[in-house]
Design a protein around this nucleic acid. Structure first.
Length: 900
RNA sequence: GGGCGCGUAGCUCAGUGGGAGAGCAUCCGCCUUACAAGCGGAGGGUCAGGGGUUCGAAACCCUUCGCGCCCACCA
């Protein structure tokens, strides 16, 4: 462990000098400080003040000229339209913990904040606002509408930034970015042109997912499938007179208006004779061919499929294979445009109308039958997606996705937890081309210009758009995820060769929920590798799960179980909220939370608060050298050794993204080791005064100092407040992260104090069983402590369990046999509850006997003795010895019990 | 339809080949001079069922049952 003087000294250019120690080099926190601390932690009084100090101190501002090793995280940019929900709070807590620790470890740490313009989602929000005033975006016109969205962005985005401050996010505000700002728009245009020039974006007429309400194309990932109830109807095509009738089954009868073929499987004997002939499409009078296609499943329905190339992706494929025409029969709002009685009907109105008309003609051969099938819905508005044939822009994902997969496959990018890489591969290895054009107004407009004579020109960021009569720019904008995919380098200044890009790219770790592994992570991988010469955008992808309620249920408004992070921050504090989330965050796992657990986290904050109060009241010292190991008492050695072990384990768990384990380790070290045992053990020493007390004050200060540092990444506010009071320095934000110092590891001291704890616990247990009030002092005689090397600690033990030295008239009435040869005789003036004690001893006896039997059985098993490794056998032998001794002790104690 | 995962204390979850754990909840006793947002003590589990591998299984394999998630263009 580094020495205390160094630890409090500023180590970063931004760090503020600690308050000069008055008079001497040693700085002893006085009782005055403690008096300043209320008996409870009140987060509201601390958080705003601390955050303002951090920002004013410039601690979060990263320096690209620094010679320190970089550590970079780019924030998953929240949707500018939304507000931060508890899932963001989890995501941010994890990122903040990582970046705060690295900052303390001396890295040039950058956490880059920003927001996403979220094209379709944001446009929808503003359109709804307009609708409230009876307006549509067309009433405003494109420019005015976009202007309106920018206004909303300023309002909504500001709220998000405020929430981030409340959470304590240590982001570099000087580098805040927005996907629509000038720099990022330039990046978008640059990569679009590069892709275009490389032939990796193209325009094509294809069947795409279309939202008839949003009136735009959607990519595959913007479509959510659900199993919906449908009805399968069987319709007879053809007149049947010449045997050319054929029955098809469909859930979408309305599309028959656009049928251009009927398809059967080539091997289907039932229909072989019909292949190559024509049938008449009912209601239309059109005659269409019957074709043979492998895609048809002869076992499904009637084995014959109606083919509507313009309104079904499969049918489109079949159409391509057989050179069929595509008949578009619906407009962009999914209203029937085909001439006839159905014109003007919505698709869902047309369906029953057409079925009724068919029935009237006797064409329905099998009545409607319920049929559950997967139906796509717009992920933004829920409207049933309509496959639509239209001219759109696509990214050719083949080579990009291959590279994205390889980067993880060959280990250049690690996925945590590794199991989730399977999902990633499943995605990138089966990716379709990506439809990137959107018929929206809010977004990056596609930099393609069309000339009067059919010219198509892609315009780069530094190019002058073609002027002249008849030239016009493509009306569409790009998919939001197109710009999000550039985030790790566009935010650092790309395409310019900036100092930030050189220093902070590739980023260190990407933290996000597994739910957007496909949406976002895969796209960043594709674009990062492509734009940055094969350098992946991050070294590690650390995935967490979704926040859930205390029963593991998804949070949703309809369940009424949604937690607003600001609500918890108000009521329990930001640190409690963060600790609750971090404590549940196992890698890749969902995070259940509840108000009760958050209360517990708040209590933990208060525990730290009061432990520090105790230290201050007792004059804990944080400056100066920690005494050499040889000068330390057993208790000092024990707690310092426990601290070393905690530092070691916390580091290991941090590196493994095991946030739940980090929290668990620190919680137990702080509450059990430090508060429940160590502070109690220091009380008699401090009360006695003298050199021992002086030394204890130094160790106590050191332990708390380091504990607060260790907790700071997860609980930044309370630790900063306490640490600055304890040390007199400005802030723990840029203090050194604790380092393991092997000189203070002391397993034998740990064993001795553990023995002491066993004795204390046994006496307490007896006292509790006997109903002895804590305040009641009992005379006692102890022996056998030397067997554990704790004979020096008899006074300490007596202090902890209120046992007096035996007086003149000592008459033991109870003998506790603790462990080894330790016995404690207590003078309870004959007032012991023999029944309770007998019950206790009988239970212990049974446990010891069980243990004894188990061990003997094993050791008597030749196969075990022959094959089990020696250390395992030795361990069983040791257990046997302990069990035998326990049995003997307990038996003796039972025998010594006065008969009732 | 394909893929992935889960089932351990009342609840939520750790534990992945050698003595069943944590937090919360429960019960008992305490205002013991940092903290009642606290302190001390206690109870509670055939590790979903079955089979197998092994000297040894909560863990590895097979299987049954139950649950969840992701992906998906069979009308």
């Amino acid at each position: 462990m580094t020495d205390a003087t160094e630890q409090t000294a500023p180590m970063h250019p931004h760090a503020v000098e600690p308050a000069p120690a008055p008079g001497s080099g040693d700085q002893v926190a006085s009782g005055d400080h403690a008096a300043a601390l209320a008996s409870r932690y009140q987060p509201g009084e601390v958080e705003g003040r601390r955050y303002a100090q951090w920002v004013a101190g410039g601690y979060f501002t990263a320096d690209p000229a620094s010679d320190r090793e970089p550590f970079t995280i780019v924030i998953p940019p929240p949707n500018v339209t939304g507000s931060l929900h508890i899932g963001h709070a989890l995501d941010h807590t994890i990122q903040d913990s990582l970046v705060r620790r690295k900052r303390m470890q001396g890295f040039a740490a950058l956490w880059l904040p920003g927001m996403d313009h979220a094209g379709i989602a944001t446009q929808n929000v503003v359109e709804r606002q307009l609708a409230g005033q009876g307006l549509s975006r067309h009433d405003l016109g494109r420019d005015a509408f976009v202007e309106r969205v920018w206004e909303w962005k300023a309002e909504s985005g500001g709220a998000i930034l405020g929430q981030m401050r409340r959470l304590g996010d240590s982001v570099d505000w000087s580098r805040e970015r927005f996907t629509m700002d000038d720099g990022l728009s330039r990046a978008v245009q640059t990569i679009f042109k590069k892709l275009y020039d490389d032939g990796l974006v193209y325009q094509a007429e294809r069947i795409i997912n279309w939202c008839p309400r949003c009136l735009t194309a959607l990519s595959d990932i913007e479509v959510e499938h659900s199993d919906d109830d449908g009805e399968l109807v069987s319709i007879r095509y053809g007149d049947g007179a010449g045997g050319d009738a054929i029955v098809v089954a469909t859930t979408r009868a309305e599309t028959m208006l656009g049928d251009t073929a009927v398809a059967v499987h080539p091997d289907d004997e039932r229909y072989r004779h019909l292949v190559g002939t024509e049938v008449e499409v009912p209601l239309t009078g059109r005659r269409i061919p019957i074709v043979a296609d492998e895609h048809v499943d002869p076992a499904f329905g009637t084995g014959a499929v109606k083919v509507t190339p313009a309104h079904d992706p499969n049918d489109f494929e079949i159409g391509q294979r057989h050179g069929l025409p595509s008949l578009t029969i619906m407009d962009e709002r999914a209203v029937i445009t085909a001439h006839g009685p159905f014109q003007g009907l919505d698709r869902f109105e047309a369906r029953p109308a057409i079925v009724a008309a068919l029935r009237a003609q006797g064409r329905i051969v099998a009545e409607k039958r319920p049929y559950v099938h997967a139906v796509g819905h717009c992920s933004r508005c829920g409207t049933t997606v309509e496959p639509r044939l239209s001219l759109q822009w696509f990214v050719s994902t083949g080579p990009l996705a291959k590279a994205a997969g390889d980067a993880v496959r060959d280990g250049r990018v690690k996925v945590e937890p590794p199991e989730l890489a399977k999902r990633y591969f499943a995605w990138v290895d089966n990716m379709h081309d990506w439809c990137i054009s959107r018929q929206l107004w809010w977004g990056h407009r596609i930099p393609i210009w069309y000339g009067p004579d059919g010219e198509v020109v892609c315009v780069g960021p530094d190019d002058q758009p073609p002027g002249g009569v008849g030239w016009r720019q493509d009306e569409d904008v790009l998919d939001t995820w197109f710009s999000s995919g550039l985030w790790p380098f566009s935010t650092l200044g790309w395409p310019d060769e900036t100092a930030d890009l050189a220093k902070f790219y590739p980023t260190s770790v990407l933290v996000t929920g597994y739910d957007i592994l496909f949406f976002w992570v895969a796209r960043m991988m594709m674009f990062g590798l492509y734009a940055m010469d094969g350098q992946a955008p991050f070294h590690t992808v650390a995935l967490h799960g979704m926040v859930r309620d205390q029963h593991g249920k998804k949070m949703s408004k309809s369940f009424g179980n949604v937690v607003d992070p600001l609500d918890w921050i108000e009521r329990f504090g930001a640190d409690a909220t963060r600790f609750t989330l971090a404590r549940g965050a196992n890698p890749g796992g969902d995070v259940p939370i509840s108000e009760e657990w958050c209360e517990n986290s708040r209590n933990f904050c208060n525990k730290l608060w009061n432990a520090t109060r105790f230290a201050l009241i007792n004059g804990a010292t944080v400056a100066g050298q920690l005494p050499a190991p040889a000068e330390l008492s057993d208790v000092d050695r024990w707690i310092l050794s426990r601290l070393q072990d905690t530092v070691r384990q916390v580091d290991a768990q941090f590196e493994a993204y095991e946030f739940a384990k980090v929290c668990d380790l620190l919680f137990h070290f702080a509450w059990d080791d430090v508060c429940d045992w160590y502070l109690e053990l220091t009380k008699p020493v401090l009360a006695a005064g003298g050199a021992d007390a002086d030394r204890t004050r130094r160790v106590l200060g050191h332990v708390l100092d380091n504990l607060l540092r260790l907790l700071h990444p997860v609980m930044p506010f309370v630790t900063d407040e306490l640490w600055s009071v304890l040390t007199g320095a400005e802030t723990v934000v840029v203090a050194d992260w604790p380092v393991v110092d092997g000189a203070y590891r002391d397993p034998s001291a740990e064993r001795r104090i553990e023995a002491l704890q066993r004795v204390v616990t046994e006496v307490r247990r007896f006292r509790a069983d006997q109903g002895l009030r804590p305040s009641q002092r009992v005379a006692a005689r102890m022996s056998g402590l030397d067997g554990h090397g704790i004979d020096d600690h008899e006074a300490l033990i007596r202090a902890l369990v209120r046992l007096d030295e035996p007086g003149q008239a000592f008459g033991a009435t109870a003998v506790l046999a603790v462990s080894g040869d330790v016995t404690v005789e207590l003078d309870t003036s004959g007032a012991i509850d023999i029944g309770a004690e007998r019950a206790r001893l009988t239970r212990d006896l049974a446990a010891a006997e069980k243990e004894l039997t188990q061990c003997r059985t094993k050791l008597g098993n030749e196969a075990f003795m022959g094959k089990a490794p020696a250390p395992v056998v030795d361990k069983i032998k040791a257990r046997l010895a302990t069990a035998e001794a326990d049995l003997e002790r307990i038996t003796a104690a039972l025998a010594a019990l006065p008969s009732a």
